[in-house]
Computed example of a mutant assay.
Amino acid sequence: MTATATARTRIFRRRATGLAVAGTALVLAVPASATALAGQGAAAAADPVSVLKYTAKERKDALAYWTPARMKAVGKSVDLGPTGPKAKPWRGPTLKTVGRLFFVNAGGADTWCTATAVKSANRSAVMTAAHCVRRGSSPYNTNTAMVFVPAYHKGRTPYGAFAVRQAATPRTWEKDSVNDMSALTVDADKDGKKVTDAVGGQAIAFDRPVGGTVSAFGYSATRPQRGEELLRCTGTAKKEHGQQAISCDMSGGSSGGPWLAGFNTTTGKGGVLVSVNSALDSLTPTKMYGEVWKATAQKVYDRAQGR
């Protein structure tokens, strides 16, 4: 990892641009030998969900790796231009369920996305984008050292960090870069508290008709925030190219951030998670895209919540 990092934007279907921030001058595809790929062989082909699992040692090492100093350093290494005018810093009550998802990408670079704790049977599920977990159409290019830090703000980690134990994605993402969403299962914190016991969990919906006002949140790498503050866009969701879209100009780092329908901007409470930030319409963004969550997305979520 070099001291000076550059942003890497990954282009995928329908000219949309991936939003994960990558910090390295040279990115090489390398197999994640330390990460177990669940469900090999013929049986895996029939399973619509692909699961990455991280060992106890990998999770312990991830927590040790992501010191507060390293978290701040990765943001300083990336500058994706000025914030706004559509995206604005969130100045309402602290959104405890939303946080930064730090990891080392398949090329060995420190980077981050955004993720959200959700209501779940095991009280341990967190939603984000699939491209925050692994490269699309590339089964062995997976991310490592993943930790979720809810309510991250300017170097502060008020609820600690939760190591990612496993990451579920649609198998179509692994094979064909289709259906960019992921559900993570995280460990309890150092005091043994599960994530939704610590910060609560957003309600989540599947097969919801597209439409209505949506608040999208993310830790965009635009300046002056550069991932240190939570940004928000508000727009009316519309169907477009098989996905849903809102007016928004957040950029890299906001990947995986929540789309909340019915969110109360005064209290900072409520809101049903209906998608996550997936892609932009161009390098000078005007629209944010999110998947329409249907049966496969629910199966991915169920795998994360232990069902």
Rank of each mutant, 00 (worst) to 15 (best):
A3H: 04
T9M: 02
R13K: 14
R14L: 11
R15Y: 12
A16M: 12
T17L: 06
A25P: 01
L26V: 13
V27C: 09
L28A: 14
V30I: 15
A34N: 14
G39K: 02
A46M: 05
S50I: 03
T55Y: 06
A69T: 12
K72R: 12
A73R: 08
A73L: 08
G81F: 02
P85Y: 06
P85C: 08
K88Q: 14
P89K: 07
W90Y: 14
R100T: 09
F102Q: 03
A106R: 13
G107A: 14
A109N: 04
C113A: 13
T114S: 10
A115C: 04
A115R: 02
A115Q: 02
S120E: 10
R123P: 02
S124K: 14
T128R: 00
T128N: 00
A130I: 07
C132N: 02
V133L: 05
M146H: 04
V147F: 11
V147T: 11
V149A: 12
A151I: 07
K154L: 12
G160E: 13
V164N: 05
A167E: 02
P170M: 10
E174W: 00
E174D: 09
E174V: 12
K175H: 12
S177I: 08
D180W: 01
K190H: 11
K190L: 10
D197T: 15
V199E: 10
Q202F: 05
A205E: 09
F206K: 11
D207W: 10
D207H: 15
R208W: 08
G211C: 03
F217A: 04
R223Y: 12
P224L: 08
Q225A: 14
G227Q: 01
E229A: 14
L231A: 08
K238I: 14
K238W: 06
S247G: 10
S255I: 02
G257M: 01
K269V: 07
G271C: 07
V272T: 15
V272G: 03
V272A: 06
D281C: 11
D281S: 12
M288F: 05
Y289N: 07
E291W: 06
E291I: 05
K294W: 09
A297E: 13
Y301D: 03
